[in-house]
């Protein structure tokens, strides 16, 4: 597995003239380095100066980030750095206290209808899967399309079977979540999110609760999804995935966006001390 490579391997492998050229830019203002393939893509997510407080604790500190359509962004950071809070703000599982969040041209605010519209466009996959244990796998997936999109039952079931096919477990449709392995459950959770036909997928540490042998099957599904042109934001510690799939890495620490750049930039020549320290601990 790629993530078992040592730091030295990765650095040796991905070091190249391109990476050096990119890091030559002035580091004073945080540079936004979009992958060339996204040069003409429109902005899918815009966050400007977002703050989030939990009581006296500042979880997000002036976070600004633009994400293009079809871009794959991996968010890194130590625990408590605000990376989960950030993506949970994007579908308002947490309400931001200041700043502006615009998803697909809809501003996220108190407006319930805007929120409803955004939530049906943004799929989310959780660390703990959060499947509905009292519903079968199939019903877990059809619930959203049926109840939110008012899709007829048969159509919803056909869609669900298609998605189960896509994540590789059509034979589990009639089982209950508890009868599935962790990896299978997470794949069902991905199918459940996809059933709403979202434009954006948020992944909140999708492999952190999995046994090592199941991580790959979930990452494979995510990689396939990335290749299909989904806009994805992934909070993860899977460096192999970050290096291979991401267009851009973003590093959070203490609620602030510390550094961002291409995988090459991060793995060869990170600029900030905190980034270096974090990467040296995790690689």
């Amino acid at each position: 597995m790629p993530d078992e490579l040592s730091a030295a391997d990765i650095i040796a492998e991905s070091a190249g003239p391109k990476a050096v050229a990119e890091t030559d830019r002035a580091p004073s203002e945080e540079p936004e380095q979009f992958s060339p393939r996204l040069a003409n893509a429109r902005d899918m997510i815009i966050t400007e100066h977002v703050d989030k407080w939990f009581g006296d604790f500042q979880a997000l500190d002036d976070v600004s980030l633009r994400i293009k359509e079809e871009e794959i962004v991996v968010i890194l950071g130590p625990s408590g750095s605000g990376k989960s809070t950030y993506i949970r703000c994007l579908n308002r599982l947490e309400e931001h206290d200041a700043g502006r969040i615009v998803i697909d041209d809809i501003e996220l605010n108190e407006d319930v209808r805007a929120l409803q519209a955004i939530r049906s466009e943004v799929g989310m996959v959780f660390q703990q899967f959060n499947l509905f244990p009292h519903l079968s796998v199939l019903s877990n997936i059809t619930l959203g399309p049926q109840k939110v999109r008012h899709m007829p039952k048969l159509e919803a079931e056909a869609l669900a079977m298609q998605l189960l096919e896509r994540v590789g477990i059509p034979e589990q449709a009639d089982k209950f979540p508890a009868q599935l392995s962790g990896g299978q459950q997470q794949r069902v959770a991905i199918a459940r999110a996809l059933a709403m036909q979202p434009k954006i997928m948020l992944f909140d540490e999708p492999t952190s609760a999995l046994d090592p042998e199941m991580i790959k099957e979930v990452l494979d599904v995510m990689q396939e999804l990335a290749e299909s042109g989904m806009t994805m934001i992934v909070v993860t510690h899977e460096m192999g995935f970050a290096r291979e799939v991401a267009d851009r890495l973003v590093f959070f620490d203490e609620g602030a966006l510390v550094e961002q750049g291409t995988p090459e930039h991060f793995f060869t020549n990170p600029r900030e001390e905190r980034t270096k320290l974090f990467l040296s601990q995790i690689l």
């Binding site: 409803q116 799929g123 959780f126 959060n130 509905f132 619930l143 959203g144 999110a193």
Partner: peptide, 15 residues
């Protein structure tokens, strides 16, 4: 009930 159940319902877009 774990909070995740509420959140998963929200994320799917249920009222």
């Amino acid at each position: 009930l774990p909070r995740g159940q509420y959140e998963a319902g929200q994320a799917v877009g249920l009222s």
